[in-house]
Amino acid sequence: MRNVTRTLRVSVATVAALAAVTATVTACGSDDKGSSSSTTTVSAAAAAPAPTAEALQSVLTAFADPAKPAADKAKLVVDGDKRLGNIETMNQGLAHYQVTFAVGEIKQDGTKADAKVAVTSPHGTMPDVPMAFQYSDGAWKLADAGACTVLGMARAACQ
Rank of each mutant, 00 (worst) to 15 (best):
V12G: 00
T120N: 05
T39R: 07
A70C: 02
D32F: 15
T120G: 05
K33N: 15
V129F: 01
L8M: 00
A139Y: 05
W140E: 01
M1Y: 07
A48D: 10
S43N: 14
D72A: 04
Q108N: 14
C158P: 12
D81A: 04
D109I: 04
A154H: 06
V21F: 15
V25E: 00
K141N: 08
V150K: 00
Y135M: 10
D114S: 11
A156F: 05
V25Q: 01
L142D: 08
A53T: 11
D137C: 05
T5C: 02
S35Q: 14
F133D: 04
H123N: 07
Y97P: 03
A13R: 10
A67K: 15
K75V: 06
A71R: 07
T22Q: 06
S36C: 07
A20R: 06
A55Y: 04
M1H: 03
G34K: 15
V99Q: 11
G93S: 04
P69L: 00
A118S: 11
R2G: 06
P69M: 04
A20N: 00
K107W: 04
V15R: 03
T39D: 07
A64L: 09
V21R: 14
A102V: 07
L94P: 01
G138W: 01
Q57E: 09
R83T: 07
S30T: 04
A67F: 09
L94G: 08
L8A: 03
K75M: 13
A48P: 02
A16C: 15
A139T: 09
R155H: 15
T100S: 09
D109M: 05
M131Q: 08
V99Y: 10
H96S: 09
K82A: 09
V4Q: 03
V129K: 13
V150L: 11
A74W: 07
V99I: 08
V129Q: 12
Q108A: 12
A19H: 07
S35W: 12
L60E: 08
Q57G: 13
A19Y: 06
L151H: 08
C148E: 03
G93Q: 06
S35P: 03
Q98H: 13
D72W: 00
D65C: 00
A47R: 15
A13F: 10
Y135H: 15
P49G: 09
R2W: 10
F133A: 01
G124N: 10
A154C: 03
S58R: 11
C148A: 13
G93M: 01
H123G: 07
P49C: 09
T22S: 12
Q92L: 12
P122K: 03
A64G: 11
Q134T: 09
D31E: 12
V15L: 14
